[in-house]
Design a protein around this nucleic acid. Structure first.
Lengths: 199, 199
DNA sequence: CTGAATAGTATACAAATGTATATATGAAAG
DNA sequence: CTTTCATATATACATTTGTATACTATTCAG
């Protein structure tokens, strides 16, 4: 990504701050007004920012500005899957009332959701009871990665090892034993891409 | 907050979903279009939502919709203190270019900052190398809490025990020993209120 | 010197967008 | 039965807002 000029940087910061406070982007005229110059100049800055990849402009839409920069990206609200039910986990997540704001730059997954951890089966992987794991939905997973699976009618987080026809779920806890299942018995829901903990 | 009707609830969900995906609110007409009715009806719903306290409408502004519900709080950008220098840690944090978006509902601290962890001295507390800890700046700390202190010219994260005139820093790592210092030797920077990890 | 990028002013214009108001139906409340 | 509220259609209108273009001045690389 190209370097920004001093002025472009201040415009970018203003955009981020405006969106943080108001929840929506400013109009071109509001940008100009803030800096004390005409809006046609503001438009030039926006186009420069777009050219350099820091924002995306939805053409002909009012306030159609999306921030893209890695160093000050917008937050992404992911739904918290309170009760992930068997059969229709994604649906349950979509119906979720709760949501969590995560960093869009850290977790690049538009369709991610969060899951609150119960139990300490992943404690040796640094995932504790009460933590939220950020899950990127996918139906397969690399062997050895931490993922979310359906086992019976419950969703659990485990380190997953895949062999032909077999799936081994390994709790990251010295006192618990891995368990192996036939491929049909468990269903992979997604991969854990992040952890958020409140102390 | 008053109860929403079925229809109002679906409108509210659409607003949240739209903002989640696009980064800015829809226009009144876009709402109507989505549900298949005229925009003047959509406006009625918005006004109902405002009356019940779920959104705030900025009058006469395009896309002037702010969500207020508890389930969709705004994100908070906290600066990442790349190199916290002795003497002026907060200043360094303020000058930081990088920032992290965290959930305002989870971490209620307007002046918080983030610190990237190096080393594995807190691994038994579930804080790993590469994790970001969210720090709420404060000059004192409860004994037994996890905090950030300045030791010499370096900032470290440890579990802190305070006795009269003495401060003990305990690494949460079986292989490391606690160390005790005189009160003047270490300076308490803040309390760790959260952890964010990218996998 | 020349051309490109930056940073503005100024203005015209069409499309997008919010506001206001009148009307109608069905359900719930009194 | 009347009133109120939720829901929706229809329409007129003023304002907001993005787009396009022309023009000026400065800086910086080649």
């Amino acid at each position: 990504m190209k370097e920004l000029t001093e002025k472009q940087r201040t415009v970018y910061k203003f955009l981020a701050e405006f969106m943080r406070r108001r929840g929506y982007p400013p109009t071109i005229r509001e940008i100009g007004e803030h800096f004390g110059f005409l809006w046609s100049a503001a438009r030039g800055h926006l186009q420069a920012l777009e050219r350099k990849g820091y924002v995306r402009l939805d053409r002909a839409k009012s306030r159609g500005i999306e921030l893209r920069g890695w160093n000050m990206s917008g937050g992404l609200a992911v739904p918290v899957a309170g009760k992930v039910r068997a059969g229709k986990p994604m649906l349950a997540a979509e119906q979720s009332e709760e949501s969590l704001f995560i960093d869009r730059a850290l977790f690049q997954a538009e369709d991610a959701f969060a899951l609150k951890i119960t139990g300490d089966s992943m404690i040796d992987a640094g995932i504790w009871e009460g933590d939220y794991v950020i899950v990127k939905p996918q139906e397969t997973i690399g062997s050895g990665e931490i993922g979310v699976v359906f086992l019976g009618d419950e969703a659990t987080v485990k380190r997953i090892y895949v062999k032909k026809g077999e799936i081994t779920l390994k709790p990251e806890n010295r006192e618990m034993e891995p368990a192996t299942y036939r491929a049909g018995e468990v269903r992979i829901i997604g991969r854990v891409i992040g952890v958020v903990r409140k102390l």
